[in-house]
Design a protein around this nucleic acid. Structure first.
Length: 437
RNA sequence: CGGAGUGUGGCUCAGUCUGGUAGAGCACCGCGUUCGGGACGCGGGGGUCGCAGGUUCGAAUCCUGCCACUCCGACCA
């Protein structure tokens, strides 16, 4: 992409509405524009990041055996009356009436819809297990939206739903998602810690929040240090026994403030106790027959009788992650994108557009990087060098390849790694090798 | 939903107390000098001062009502 033809409206100063750093940086980098409280338009740069995060989530869901569907944003109120949640959900649910005076709602989640779909087609235990997910916009009319896209009213969520014949089978489905989540966040360059969450009315131990550690996180969290460094399992035998991998994590102490047990935390060796700030970026739970019973999602068992299925649901806040990653990765100059989610892989900065030498070298570099699949942004804009450096630092592109008249005269370019600030002056061929390594 | 605050060009803000021709910086347009970490000079364009009433000869400014947004708290991908 050539910056001169792109739409990347960066701001020198953050709008005063924005208080948290990720929100300020997203506005300054021209990623989003607020249209109403908790409702945002995604501008080209923001959309690129959002799509990359979404794609990572999708790939890891697919790898773990989940199947993608797409459910509507608008749902029938009658379905929610059936599950008993229509009245319970309260003012957070955005209720809509169509021209026929039919009650609709903008989905805050999709247990009802997916259960309706499932029960229409699946009738036998032989068809289980199944895990269906979608990545769709949700709306929750929060009392107080804040923190930019981290607590918007409209947000993009991946929500997966598992269907199993009994609790033991549901636990296996749960474990697959548990591992898939670890892999998902690791690919985004995040340190994530699964923490025991309030299981709600169902009880049991099958509910975890996935928390990334960031100094500006909104909740206080406590955990065993080893969890942070443990890394992700990667590809595993998804049909095998995942319980040991899960227990390797759940056996170590980890809890958010609400679930914190000071006595249990005191059992953790002192040098392993970590008390930090965190942001919730995922939540998984098993809810048994909560929806299948009232909504009659049943399959025939080997005994020939119908049994309600055992369900679980698994959420990832996709739009929230854009903000959360920034909270975890930024400096005074701006955003520092992990390579996997960066809007562009590298910025080629032509310091003197119109100069035959810099134009030629920039163009050569740009074409080579396109060919290498590095998705480059060519800054061919007519601005002073300082402004260009500041803008590219701000938007957080992982690599900068700087083409200036001085370098062209000695046959070199400068490359800079955004995360470390490390600079190298090299002939173009070598610079490209370093970036493409 | 309780408490606090803010609405003035695209962005940051001054002006409001004490009513009297709407301002600055950044951004934008033109010309010139510049050009390796957010340059400088000269000239220019752009604002129903959140909305609606009211007071007044006269309202960004005072009064009333409403709306929007932000922050703190209780609740949440």
């Amino acid at each position: 992409m050539r910056l001169s033809r792109y739409f990347m409206p960066t701001l020198r100063e953050a709008p005063s509405d924005a208080q948290v750093v990720s929100h300020q940086l997203m506005l300054r980098a021209g990623m989003i524009r607020q249209e109403a409280a908790g409702i945002y338009a995604w501008l080209p740069l923001g959309l690129r990041v959002l799509k990359k995060i979404e794609q990572i989530v999708r790939e890891e869901m697919d790898r773990a055996g989940a199947i993608e569907v797409l459910m509507p944003t608008l749902q029938l109120a009658d379905l929610w009356r059936e599950s008993g949640r229509y009245e319970d959900y309260g003012d957070e649910m955005l209720r809509i009436t169509d021209r026929h005076k039919r009650d609709l709602l903008y989905g805050p989640t999709a247990e009802e819809v997916i259960t309706e779909i499932f029960r229409a087609y699946v009738k036998s235990y032989k068809d289980l297990p199944k895990n269906l997910y979608n990545i769709q916009w949700k709306f929750r009319d929060e009392r107080r939206p804040r923190f930019g896209v981290m607590r918007g009213r409209e947000f993009l969520m991946k929500d997966a739903y598992s269907f199993d014949v009994d609790e033991a089978a549901a636990r296996k489905s749960y474990n697959r998602m548990f591992i898939a989540y670890l892999n998902t966040y690791a690919r985004m360059g995040l340190n994530v810690v699964p923490m025991k969450a309030d299981p709600g009315p169902i009880g049991g131990d099958l509910s975890h929040e996935f928390i990334i550690l960031a100094d500006t996180g909104e909740s206080q969290v406590f955990c065993h240090k080893d969890l942070v460094e443990m890394g992700a399992p990667g590809d595993v035998d998804w049909d095998g026994d995942l319980q040991p991998l899960v227990e390797q994590r759940t056996n170590l102490y980890a809890a958010t403030e609400e679930m914190h047990d000071e006595a249990a935390f005191a059992q953790v060796p002192e040098d392993k106790r970590l008390s930090a700030r965190g942001i919730e970026v995922g939540h998984i739970f098993y809810f048994g027959e909560k929806y299948s019973k009232p909504m009659k999602a049943e399959v025939a068992g080997p005994d020939g009788q119908n049994h309600p299925i055992h369900g679980g649901s698994y959420g990832v806040g996709v739009s929230r992650l854009t903000g959360a990653i920034i909270e975890a990765s930024h400096d005074e100059a701006g955003i520092i994108w992990p390579d996997a989610v960066a809007p562009f892989g590298v910025a080629v900065i032509n310091l003197r557009p119109g100069d035959a030498g810099t134009d030629e070298v920039s163009e050569t570099a740009y074409q080579a990087l396109i060919a290498a699949g590095k998705d480059p942004l060519l800054d061919d804009s007519d601005q002073r060098p300082g402004a260009k450096f500041a803008a590219i630092d701000l938007v957080g592109i992982p690599w900068q390849l700087v083409v200036g008249p001085k370098g062209v005269a000695d046959g070199t370019v400068e490359i800079k790694r955004r995360a470390t600030g490390e600079k190298q002056t090299l002939p173009l061929e070598q610079a490209l090798k370093v970036i493409c390594a």
